[in-house]
Design a protein around this nucleic acid. Structure first.
Lengths: 203, 203
DNA sequence: GGTTTATGAATGAAAG
DNA sequence: CTTTCATTCATAAACC
């Protein structure tokens, strides 16, 4: 995301033949379309049928399977939520990274960077990342479907100021030393499992 | 690969001030604390809330964000797993299966089953499986599946290669769910050393 | 300065 | 949906 090169596998529509590549990676057009759906159209909850449709559509831009589309949406959703939960990028007093879903141009487009303060240094990545998901934007290619029933539109707010009090470090009760012992629910279940099925490709 | 110098970034607690530095690097105190959590406390699965706490705590030692903490734990876990896998793949050339549990007991449970040597053709199915008790499963990929939950960070899972043993905090208290009666500094250190190499003609 | 190592960051895939 | 795993990319030091 913050990276700009982020080089792709770049086999432009026919991967998987070139040397042991097993993991799907979206081609640039595929990624553009997927992001267009997600960010611009706010299309985040494709049904299985819609997944098929999207996948079919994307096939002209490179090899892809249904499950790739499925995972792509799932991961993106999960990571946006995770980001909110951990307040990633949320920092006050640096640069602002507003994410509007506009028709801006670059690979992932739709980000406007406002830089406040810190005259002269593009340094620390203090940033706020606002994400206004759904817009009415343009159709991806003019063919893809409608929303999944109602808007399922999730919270797109951001918790600017984390409030939490506890501290795992806070007051360790310092059981006088490296503290083994001490009762409590000390369970000593121990299991150990190492499993190596032979994909030995080590050097 | 195995390197012991373990060089430090060494920017003395204030990095990132000199332009164009975008990648976080832990300051020595931060790294010390993080390692203390991971190795000494066996704290390897921080929840998002705990990540925030850790991050907050580490801020006094230098700039840091939640995602840095998140990635730090992710990477360390992943690389430890990877290292173990490589280690065993290199050292062990047969298959070994120890089973001290009641799983698949023919009569009594507690069976030991050692399989060295190639049972059959040149199968690449080298595997080691030590199973004491039966609670943890392992995925199809052999990764160790610990359950999540209250005591997730309490369990010490196979510190096969303890790197160091410094102790940072006397104790650690997890955030808000303190009711479980865990959270002591008890550290179950299990060391398992199989020294095969040398005369190993087990393949 | 090219190569290797260490490690932060990203993301596809999958488990639970 | 949530969390973790596996693999990969990227990059800063360290090494030669």
């Amino acid at each position: 995301m913050e990276q700009q090169t982020q080089q792709q596998i770049e086999d432009g529509g026919n991967n998987q033949a070139a040397g042991t590549n097993n993991r799907w990676a979206p081609t640039p057009p595929q990624l553009r379309i997927l992001k267009g759906l997600y960010y611009d159209k706010g299309f985040k909850y494709p049904t299985p049928e819609q997944i098929q449709e999207i996948c079919l559509h994307l096939k002209q831009y490179g090899q892809i399977e249904d499950k790739n589309v499925f995972f792509w949406f799932q991961n993106l959703k999960a990571r946006e939520r995770q980001k909110l939960k951990e307040f990633w990028n949320v920092r006050v007093g640096g640069s602002l990274d507003l994410n509007f879903g506009s028709t801006s141009s670059t690979d992932d487009g739709r980000s406007i960077d406002l830089n406040f303060g810190s005259t002269g240094s593009t340094s620390t990545d203090r940033s706020i990342n606002l994400n206004f998901g759904s817009r009415v934007g343009y159709g991806v290619d003019g063919s893809i479907m409608e929303q999944r029933g109602e808007y399922h539109q999730e919270i797109e707010t951001l918790p600017l100021f984390p409030m939490h009090g506890e501290d795992i470090f806070g007051n360790m009760k310092t059981t006088s030393e490296g503290g083994s012992g001490y009762g409590g629910g000390s369970r000593i279940s121990l299991e150990l499992s190492l499993n190596f099925y032979g994909n030995a490709d080590i050097a």
